[in-house]
Amino acid sequence: MIRRTFILGLAASAVIPAMPALAAGGFVDYRPGVIEKALAAGKTVFVDYAATWCTTCKAQSRVLAQLMKENPAYAQSMTFVRVDWDDYGNQPVARDRNIPRRSTLLVLRGDRELGRIVAGTSKAEIKALLDKGL
């Protein structure tokens, strides 16, 4: 029994790192290629450049969670990706899109940026950005 549990655990640990982790609130944790793959599949992508220590990011996260709860269509029509600023702030995922800082939210579809918010926490402003993705 112990050997079977060990083998199943070992097999699971080999598969799990290959899958993008689902972050809180239905967000996928960014890994290189995640955004491009979703866009290539014709999906609209909501990207949240955030840091765990950022108070503005936390305020945005609370507003996003509330809006997503109020309108399930957001989660159904978009892929949500959270980019860890500490890990990727100086990487192409931020540089190539001219992301000035953490607490930047943007909506992408195809090869176009539909909108962005930098450091905004207003529910109305974030809702308007989400609505652009519908």
Rank of each mutant, 00 (worst) to 15 (best):
T104R: 03
Q66A: 15
A119M: 13
V118K: 08
D87V: 09
G33P: 08
L39S: 09
K127I: 02
L10Y: 12
K123C: 03
L22C: 08
L130T: 07
S13I: 13
F27H: 13
G89E: 01
S77K: 15
V15Y: 01
W85N: 02
L134W: 00
L105A: 04
A23I: 09
I7G: 02
N71W: 05
A14G: 14
T44P: 09
D86E: 12
R62N: 08
A75C: 09
P92Y: 01
V45N: 06
A18L: 15
E113A: 03
A73Y: 03
L130N: 08
R31Y: 01
Y49K: 03
S13A: 14
I2T: 13
L108E: 02
L10M: 15
V81C: 01
C57Y: 09
R109E: 12
G89H: 04
V83G: 08
R112I: 07
L114D: 00
G115D: 01
V28M: 13
Y49N: 06
P72L: 04
D86I: 01
K123I: 00
Q76F: 05
A24I: 07
R109M: 00
I117M: 10
M19D: 00
Q66L: 11
G25D: 07
L106S: 00
L129K: 07
F27T: 09
A119Y: 06
F27N: 06
W85M: 01
G133T: 12
A11V: 15
L22S: 11
N98L: 13
K123S: 07
D131H: 04
A11D: 13
G42C: 07
R101N: 14
V34Y: 07
E36C: 11
F27Q: 08
T104H: 06
G42R: 10
T79N: 08
W53K: 11
G33Q: 03
E113D: 02
I7Q: 11
I117A: 10
Y74G: 01
T104P: 02
A38D: 12
P32C: 04
C57R: 08
V118P: 12
R109W: 02
D87I: 02
R112S: 13
D96E: 10
W85C: 03
D48P: 07
T56C: 05
M1V: 13
M19T: 11
K43W: 07
A75P: 06
M68N: 11
Q66K: 15
L106A: 01
G33T: 06
N90I: 02
G89L: 04
R109N: 10
L129M: 06
T52Y: 04
A59H: 05
Q91C: 00
V15H: 09
A38E: 12
K69Q: 13
T44V: 14
M1C: 12
C54T: 07
P20Q: 12
R62D: 06
V93F: 00
N71C: 08
M78C: 04
S103Q: 00
I16A: 14
A50C: 04
V93E: 05
D96S: 10
S61E: 12
V15Q: 02
L39M: 10
I16E: 11
R102G: 02
L67S: 02
L10V: 15
L114S: 00
L105H: 03
T79G: 05
G133H: 05
R116E: 06
A50H: 06
P32T: 05
L134K: 15
A21K: 14
